[in-house]
Design a protein around this nucleic acid. Structure first.
Length: 131
DNA sequence: AACCTGACGAAGA
DNA sequence: TTCTTCGCCAGGT
C-alpha cells in the first residue's frame, strides 16, 4: 500500500495547446460564478478532457493566478474529500464571492453556473409520451 | 512501452 | 438518490 507521496503538487505542467486553453478559460470565469471541469474541457477543445482539467489546475504553478476555486464538478459539488484542507479552502473562497451552498458540498449550478452563452437552448422537461 | 493514479462525467442498477 | 462501471485525458513510475 503505497502511501500517498503527494509530491506532485506544484509540479509544473506541460505547456500544450490544451493546458494553455484551460488556463485561459478558467481566468474568464466571473467572480461569483462557477464552471464545471467538463465545461472548461469543452471550451478548451477537448470534450472528454475533464480529468485533464483537474490535473492541470492541481499541478499548475500558475495556480496562484487562477480562480481555481470556481471550477467544480458536474454535480455542482467540490471535488475534494470533504474533510481536506483544500475542500474547506475552496468552499470558503466561493462563499466569500457570494456563492451559496445548498448542501454541505454543492451549489446550485442552475443559479451560479457560468453560462458563457445565452441559455436559449435549455432543455425543458419533455412530457412523457410513453410509460 | 505497460500499468497506475486522479480536483471528471455519463449511464446503469 | 447513492454507488458502480466504464471511458476520457494528463502525468508518473
Amino acid at each position: 500500500m503505497a502511501q500517498a507521496k503527494s509530491s506532485l503538487r506544484g509540479a509544473p505542467i506541460k505547456i500544450t495547446a490544451f493546458s494553455k486553453a484551460v488556463i485561459k478559460w478558467v481566468k474568464k470565469i466571473p467572480r461569483g460564478k462557477v464552471a464545471t471541469y467538463g465545461q472548461i474541457a469543452r471550451l478548451a477543445g477537448k470534450p472528454g478532457g475533464a480529468r485533464g482539467v483537474g490535473w492541470i489546475l492541481n499541478s499548475s504553478s500558475e495556480k496562484n493566478d487562477l480562480p481555481w476555486q470556481r471550477v467544480i464538478n458536474s454535480q455542482g459539488a467540490i471535488s475534494f474529500r470533504p474533510k481536506s484542507a483544500e475542500f474547506q479552502l475552496q468552499k470558503k473562497l466561493l462563499q466569500k464571492e457570494g456563492v451559496e451552498f445548498t448542501t454541505k458540498k454543492s451549489v446550485n449550478l442552475d443559479h451560479y453556473g457560468w453560462k458563457k452563452e445565452p441559455a436559449n437552448t435549455r432543455k425543458r422537461n419533455a412530457p412523457k409520451m410513453f410509460d
